[in-house]
């Protein structure tokens, strides 16, 4: 069985990339393929609490974060120190990796797809 990492790096509301990356993660999980997520760059904005996007902005992808456990997607990684928001104002389910762990992360998977 192949283990997949979905790497989100695009801004959640400036294109469909985050949405379509998450869709792929959900389908992988639905087909019982182990899948983890990691977020960097503009995609970190996905984690900020109290988002209220209008239909013109797109779907509220932040809401899906709480649903990931229903899909058995349990590992959502970010690099420590990159999320410049005080804790309590961001989604709490992420696992922070130090620089070395983050760099190593990408070689732990047979497949890494970036969105």
């Amino acid at each position: 069985m192949t283990h997949t990492l979905i790497h989100l790096s695009s801004s959640p509301y400036s294109s469909l990339s985050c949405k379509e990356g998450l869709d792929l993660a959900l389908v992988l999980a639905t087909f019982e393929q182990p899948v983890d997520l990691c977020l960097s760059g503009a995609a970190l904005a996905l984690l900020v609490s109290n988002q209220a996007p209008l239909p013109e902005h797109g779907k509220n992808l932040h809401k899906l974060l709480d649903g990931l456990e229903m899909y058995d997607i349990e590992n959502i990684y970010i690099e420590a120190g990159k999320l410049e928001i005080e804790s309590g104002k961001a989604w709490s389910g992420v696992t922070e990796l130090d620089k070395a762990q983050w760099a190593k992360l990408f070689s732990n998977y047979q497949q890494v797809f970036r969105f």
Binding site: M1, T2, T4, D23, L24, V27, L28, F31, Q33, Q111, F113, R114
Partner: peptide, 16 residues
């Protein structure tokens, strides 16, 4: 997307 997963599991490598 299930077709992509079938391909993933029947080939050595997926290149994006």
């Amino acid at each position: 997307l299930g077709t992509l997963i079938d391909l993933m599991n029947s080939t050595n490598k997926v290149i994006q």
